[in-house]
Design a protein around this nucleic acid. Sequence first.
DNA 1: GTAACTCTTATGAGCTACTAATAAGCAGAA
DNA 2: TTCTGCTTATTAGTAGCTCATAAGAGTTAC
Lengths: 210, 210
Amino acid sequence: MSGKRLSKKERHQTLLSKLEANPLLTDEQLAKELGVSIQTIRLDRLALGLPELKERAKSIASRALNGENHPASLEVVGELLYCEPGVGGLSRMVAEPAMSLSRYNIIRGHYLFAQANSLAVAVADAPHALTGAARVEFSRPVQAGQVLIARARVLEKRGRRFVVEVVTRVDGQEVFQGKFLILALDGKNLTEEKLDLENETAIDRREMND
Amino acid sequence: MSGKRLSKKERHQTLLSKLEANPLLTDEQLAKELGVSIQTIRLDRLALGLPELKERAKSIASRALNGENHPASLEVVGELLYCEPGVGGLSRMVAEPAMSLSRYNIIRGHYLFAQANSLAVAVADAPHALTGAARVEFSRPVQAGQVLIARARVLEKRGRRFVVEVVTRVDGQEVFQGKFLILALDGKNLTEEKLDLENETAIDRREMND
DNA sequence: GTAACTCTTATGAGCTACTAATAAGCAGAA
DNA sequence: TTCTGCTTATTAGTAGCTCATAAGAGTTAC
């Protein structure tokens, strides 16, 4: 790869910076990049006290696992700006390039759905809730980099069932809208819930049709 | 470690929860903790689609390095088992613990939507396509560890518009069903598409209502 | 010149944590 | 009983290493 032969010291410096930039490089990859043999890389790691790939990956992983464990924040897709349970809420999400289709820059529909669904579940006035059904419409394509603001409104609340309307906008222009039927869990017995759900969604399908 | 012998399903659940708690456990450690042989653990991982330790460590590490906090990304939404463009297709997805609600083990609705949506877009007979609208129903809760098989059928094709029906099952039992309106992109000009979409979805909303 | 020295590369044995394929055992249902 | 599902064992092969040993090139010292 690199045309010139480096001195040992220079190589050590380069090695350190390469591993700092990407600690998941194998000795073989490093050897190619530095234009030396694998054995040399191994002597270098020995001299510099650098652990092998497995150890590097493990220590990064365990640091990540111990350091940032915020399961609550992962519950919601997008950032919950405001939430009044039983009434409504607001969520913000930045459309990232990773969310888009390969060739075009258009965000895939299920990301919009995920943001809206998470918000709808969040505004349901219950400690835990599930989505029973939904009707959604993708009014305009969204591109990477745009900021999505989703606004939820609880239209109806009957027992454990909520009907929530979500409208998502970019720069004030609607890009998505949907109506979600949310079912609250009482949290006692989930096997019972299973049996209930089928009836409930069947009943509520009619409610969803305007 | 554990005194009693568990059933296969129970063991799979325990395995998932152990790996969720600590993804850096080796097969040997898991085998000891569950009171079975290493081979059984390996068969279990195979059945549940769980990668080996190296891969788990690497992926956690690289996610940590890229600053991505989302353990279950919506990018990969199942494995396309079969696809006949314009006719139908089949997709498989393993429900991971990271896709579930915190307290309960129930997979969040937007993951089911994502699998179905991706499949619906894939079966549309066009190089590139977008979702215009959808009506979905979550018939039964899905738990982590379960294998989701989604089957898509193109119900209607008119010009650039496809109506695709998707039914998702676990062990043959329906857990999700939805109807998607998919719009093919001709790929020339996306700013034009934007203007079209609003009219098209408005028109097609009627088509979606059975 | 050659001996001493550093640096690099090569070779081989052995390790861990696996994959993949094959076969054998065993318990419960048809 | 035979058949099937599940479990366990065995063997061969893999990546990405460790550790030890050795051979060669290049430089320096005398």
